[in-house]
Design a protein around this nucleic acid. Sequence first.
DNA 1: CTGAAAGCGCTTACAG
DNA 2: CTGAAAGCGCTTACAG
Lengths: 346, 346
Amino acid sequence: MTSITEVARLAGVSIATASRVVSAADYPVSASTRERVLIAAKELDYVPNALARGLLKSQIPLVGVIVHDTADPYFAEIVRGVEDAAESGGYLVITCSSEREGAREASYVRLLRSMRAAGVIFAGSDLDDPASANELPRHVAALRASGAAVVHLSARAEGRPEISIDNRAAIGSMVAALVGMGHRRIALLAGPTALYAARERRIGFSSALQDLGVAPDERLILETGFAAESGASAVDELMAAGMKPGIDFTAIVCANDLLALGTLQRLHEHGIDVPRDVSVAGFDDIPVAAMTAPSLSTVRLPLREMGRRGFEAAIRVLDGERVEPVLLPTEVILRDSTAAPASRGN
Amino acid sequence: MTSITEVARLAGVSIATASRVVSAADYPVSASTRERVLIAAKELDYVPNALARGLLKSQIPLVGVIVHDTADPYFAEIVRGVEDAAESGGYLVITCSSEREGAREASYVRLLRSMRAAGVIFAGSDLDDPASANELPRHVAALRASGAAVVHLSARAEGRPEISIDNRAAIGSMVAALVGMGHRRIALLAGPTALYAARERRIGFSSALQDLGVAPDERLILETGFAAESGASAVDELMAAGMKPGIDFTAIVCANDLLALGTLQRLHEHGIDVPRDVSVAGFDDIPVAAMTAPSLSTVRLPLREMGRRGFEAAIRVLDGERVEPVLLPTEVILRDSTAAPASRGN
DNA sequence: CTGAAAGCGCTTACAG
DNA sequence: CTGAAAGCGCTTACAG
């Protein structure tokens, strides 16, 4: 690889001058000199060494996004948003999947620290994993101390996230829509309660029911994972517990869309018609939600925008600006998987 | 951030010695000295500066994966495989989405070059975009010249990819399965012919039909995009051309699963039953293919393995080993979207 | 407007 | 086994 030294030599100038031209620094250089340097750089196919520059600035234009699971479309969409925003700024985005293991998350953050990443965006909620309970905060503190930006995109136990949504209200509005259709016996596939966001959704679900004068039934609330298979097995669990679809429950609210996909499929296998026998609602509005048969009613989260805003917040932190926490709006999207119950349970 | 200088000072040794300990170099250091350095490093929460090390080695443990579209599960799975393999080696993975624009692809590769990435993995086929026709090869050549690994995971016009599958044979086996069920009038949603892989699949489709003694009908071959919406509009197009489902065509083969999802949905909206009226087959076997209703018959590509092997190939190149091109096996997966035709067309 | 020089944080011959 | 020193490729005061 050619270095700036060779460019300078070919152009017949000092490396200082060459640097001023190629780094697009705001520093006076005569037009003719500038021209010579540019030609030399082009001639030699010069690409500056970001490592050398980064060493000097002790920062490199790289932001890491820590997700729970790369394969989950929820995170894929957020990452997409970050990438969209990062691209124009010349930043590269690294996606790190913790697989919901605290140790792995901490080790990725350490790696990002060693690379002197300009920012780290935590896309999911806190992991609550004792394995990394002190390592992670140490890395985060060091990152911040060295001027890197740390941004959170999901509800967490401590501190408010820079960018997030109101999980309680969001799921509450779906519950309200369902109750408005006439549903009274509504099940919840709650997701993993180890995750703060899932706990919030669960609280929002129950309090919405109460606010609407519907007595919640604890037997209809199931703790699950966040993958599609969990949705399928939760259906089995519900039925094994003697809960009759259409009678003991007329609707199922899922804490994310993936759960709803699994639910839809298992219900279909059992010959239970959606939405005639049971309504199904998701949460997140991942792209595939619009493409299932029947298409999925869900709560739309502005995932790409969350990613975009997360990156912008990071840039603002880097610029030394103050970033106020912001709550993005969500929206209930009613598609074909929900309808008024045919026979009222209860 | 603490530097090795501070660690050395606290441990009371030279920075050379400190470096030998913390970099885990294979160099003799007395046990007691080693101990002191390790304690100092821990005490100071020392994390080595990967930029400084990278500057010296003119390479950093980073591999970039160039994909056509981050949101496409095909690429998401491949990236996942790369990440799985990279994680244990302490490499970070950067995903760069070209959005099928040559200029963007080239600029990402340039960025990766400026970061002195250890490797670049091209996950999709060549873009055939004149906009970057000479910039990209220049970057690739420079990358290779500087010792970085360049790996291709998809069929391309020039040079054989290190890791790939036999697109012609793969789609041919799906055609054979369909013909075996009794289908004779089979449509193809061919994907974007600007992409080499799509062209290969189209050739494989036609020649399989011919080999099986079925005369191909050009009117049943549609050029499309690679997104779900393209599948939906292709169905409209087919019907607008007066092709009657179940008569003029009894099966639709799609060049990827996303097209098949859109096809399934639009067929459902038209009240056309799958597989009774029309069979639908996909290609790739992305995770969601197993979760549609009806579940999708498709050709399984070992996507994660392709990613994993791609990373391993990159490491082998870095180690100076020779990498022989390898073709990974594919498999026809018959699910519920295909069946024998009810009435034979033709 | 131009250039010589210091220094970012490491690693690695080289000398002892 | 340990350390002093050079050097990776840049940027940026500082001097002219």
